[in-house]
Write a protein that binds this DNA or RNA. Structure first.
Lengths: 249, 249
DNA sequence: AGCGCTTAATTGCATATGCAATTAGAGAGG
DNA sequence: CCTCTCTAATTGCATATGCAATTAAGCGCT
C-alpha cells in the first residue's frame, strides 16, 4: 500500500460518514484507479487518514465486501476483487469462456472490419447526436467448429483509442475489450428474430429460422465504450436465471 | 406487534449473532409468517427478547433493509416490505401489469383447462419422479385486443389446493397465484423458437415466425408451485436489463 | 372541533473498547 | 537449509454509550 494509494481516498462530505467512505473506495475501484488485486489500506490506516473510528471504516469495507467489490481475509488484509467472469443469466461477457464452459473447443474468425465514422444506425444505438469514430467488426464464433454465435460490434474509438491498432488476432474483440478497457454500466435487450439470408448462411441454419438476439451497450461513466449484437441460433441456446420474490437468490 | 409475533423470532445458534437474527427474521418473512405490512418489533424489543445489544439487532435489521425485505422509518418503526411487482428484466410476474405499463388495455381468455394427473412432460418440467395432481391451463393475453402472449401453465395442487376450485374469472392464473400462494424461488429460461401452426393462429402471426419462449418454474421451499411457458411474438417484444461489472446496478 | 406545541418512541450514526480468529512472517532451533 | 514455534497484524464480532433526526401522538389552548 503506497502513500499515493491511501491519499486517493477522499470524502465528499455528503451523507453518512460510512457511506462517504464506501463510495470513495467504490469509485476508486470502478474508475480503475485500484485495479483488481490492489491492496486496500488496512482499517487502522484508513481510520487515521480519514479521522473516522475503526468501526465506521469497518462498516464501509464490510458493505463493499458484501457487494463483492473487495475480498477480506484476517491478517492478510483486503484486496480489490476481480469482477466475476459471468454472473447468471445474460451477463455472459466472454464467448470463449461460455463455449469452453459447455465443453466445446472454441475458435473464431473475423469476417469483416471497417474503421471510420459511424453510420446512422450505430449513432442511434449509442443514443448520440453526432457521428463518431468507431471500429466496426463482424465476428463469427465456433464451438467445435460449428457456428455458435454471430457477433456484430462497434467500438467507440474516443473511449478506447487502442482499438484502432488492435488486430484481435489473439482473442476476439469482446475479450480484448474486457482486458483493455473499463466499463461501469451495461444494458442488454433480448428478442427473437428470424435469421436473414446472409446470417443464416453464416450460422449454417435455414433462412428464417428463429434466433435469439442479444444486444448489449456498454458505457464507462457517461462515455460509450462498445455496442454489440449477438445472434444465437434459436434451438441450440437458452439463457437461464434464478431469483426469489425479493430479488436474486 | 403481538407477543406471538416476537416469540416467533428464534435463533439457531449457527454463526455470528447478527446473522442469526437476520436469518431468523428473513425466514419469517419468506415463509409468510410475517406477510407484507407486518410490524416488525422495534429494536429494543428484539434486543430484550434475544439478549443481544441494540447495535447487533440494528446491524441485522439494517442488512434486511438493504436487501429490500423490510422498510424502516424513524419513529414509525419497521414493517415488512412488499416484494417489488417486477424488478428488471425477466422478473415480469404479472402480465396485466406489464401490458398496462406499456399503455395498452389488458384482457385475457382461458382457452382450455384440464384437471388431473400430470402428463409426462409436466413431470419432467418439475423434475419429479412421479405423476402428480395438477391444474393445466391455456390462457391467451391481449393488449388492446391484439394477442400479446400465449400462456401454458400447470399448477401443483398439493401445494396450492385452492386452485382446484378457482375459475380464474377475476384475474389470470399468474396473478391469482401471486395473491394466493407463496413462492421462495423461481427459475426461468429464455430461448427462441418458431411458432407452431396452432400457436401462430392464436397469436395471429405467421407459422414459423420467431417467438421468444420464456419458461418459468416456481417453488416454495422444496415444493413445486407452478410452471409456465410464455410464448411472445418475437418482433414485438424485448426484455431489457441493466448491470455493472460487479452485478446489478 | 381545530390548531399548534411538546413529548417521547424509534431509527440512524459514530465512537470507544475489548476480545476472538486467522495467518503471514519473523525468529529459534536443529 | 529446513522446520517448528511464536508473534503480531489484520479482520470479525459484540457490547455500551451518546447524541441526532424524524415524527406519531398526546396535550393544551382557544
Amino acid at each position: 500500500m503506497s502513500a499515493s494509494q491511501i491519499d486517493a481516498v477522499a470524502l465528499d462530505g455528503a451523507g453518512p460518514l460510512y457511506d462517504q467512505i464506501r463510495r470513495a473506495i467504490r469509485d476508486l475501484i470502478l474508475n480503475g484507479a485500484w485495479p483488481p488485486g490492489t491492496v486496500v489500506p488496512p482499517e487502522h490506516a484508513l481510520m487515521e487518514r480519514l479521522g473516522a473510528s475503526r468501526m465506521t471504516v469497518h462498516r464501509a469495507l464490510g458493505q463493499l465486501a458484501r457487494e463483492g467489490l473487495i475480498t477480506r481475509r484476517r491478517r492478510s488484509g483486503t484486496i480489490v476483487a476481480s469482477p466475476p467472469a459471468s454472473h447468471a443469466m445474460l451477463d455472459i461477457l466472454s464467448i470463449p469462456e461460455e463455449v469452453r464452459g459447455l465443453g466445446h473447443e472454441y475458435s473464431y474468425r473475423i469476417l469483416a472490419r471497417r474503421d471510420g465514422r459511424a453510420q446512422r444506425p450505430v449513432v442511434a444505438l449509442f443514443e448520440l447526436g453526432r457521428a463518431v469514430e468507431v471500429v466496426h467488426l463482424t465476428v463469427l464464433h465456433f464451438a467445435d467448429g460449428v457456428p455458435h454465435v454471430l457477433e456484430e460490434r462497434v467500438i467507440h474509438l474516443a473511449t478506447v483509442p487502442a482499438a484502432g491498432q488492435e488486430q484481435f488476432a489473439a482473442m476476439p474483440p469482446g475479450d480484448w475489450l474486457l482486458q483493455n478497457s473499463l466499463w461501469s454500466q451495461a444494458e442488454h435487450a433480448i428478442s427473437a428474430v428470424a435469421a436473414e439470408t446472409d446470417q443464416a448462411q453464416l450460422l449454417a441454419i435455414g433462412e428464417g429460422e428463429p434466433c435469439l438476439l442479444v444486444e448489449r451497450r456498454t458505457w464507462n461513466q457517461r462515455e460509450p465504450v462498445t455496442a454489440v449484437r449477438l445472434l444465437y441460433p434459436g434451438g441450440r441456446h437458452r439463457f437461464i436465471g434464478r431469483f426469489g420474490p425479493y430479488g436474486k437468490v
